[in-house]
Amino acid sequence: MRYLVPLLLSTLVWWILTEAAQAWVVGVPVILVSTWVAVRLQDTDSGSAPTHRLNWFAVPRFALFFLWQSLQAGLDVAKRTLKPVPDINPGTLYYYTSIPHGTARYFFGAIVGLFPGTLCTEFSEDTDQLVLHVLDTDVDIALDCRRLEREIERLFKLPAADQQGRPA
């Protein structure tokens, strides 16, 4: 099972790269090696942190959410840039995440930079605190971040944290 997903992905990527040219004589060894490398690297991946498995059925939903949000992000930047005086009000936000330590949280830290107005600048291994840079401190960015957290929980098959974590 651990080998299955990397194997399928490698095969898919090879198929895309060669544009379905039936180059399997070269392809099969290459795919096997890349699968082995992928599994090998995942073993050393996170050290002490747990690895979260992706829920492949949730990917389309997350992709749609991501596309919509990156459209928002681009429009947001465009709106601020095209004003006669750049309309930004940058600041720092100390954000406490409910996503458990591990792959999912790393994913959150990386992808939050592509969402409207947020950018992760510091990432702690020990606490739940992230330091985010926000483009506009007047906007309630934390609300958007929590929405992203919900989606990531779905994506990684994590137990939802709403009941304990949602503020009044």
Binding site: S70, L71, G74, T81, P86, P90, L114, P116, L135
Partner: peptide
């Protein structure tokens, strides 16, 4: 247009973090 926006942001914003915002978001879109 979004590529132009990204470059404008890179040139106009006067805070290093904000420039990162402009580049990553606008250019990827």
């Amino acid at each position: 247009l979004f590529f132009i926006v990204g470059t404008l942001g890179l040139l106009r914003f006067d805070d290093a973090y904000s420039r990162i915002h402009a580049i990553t978001k606008a250019d990827n879109l």
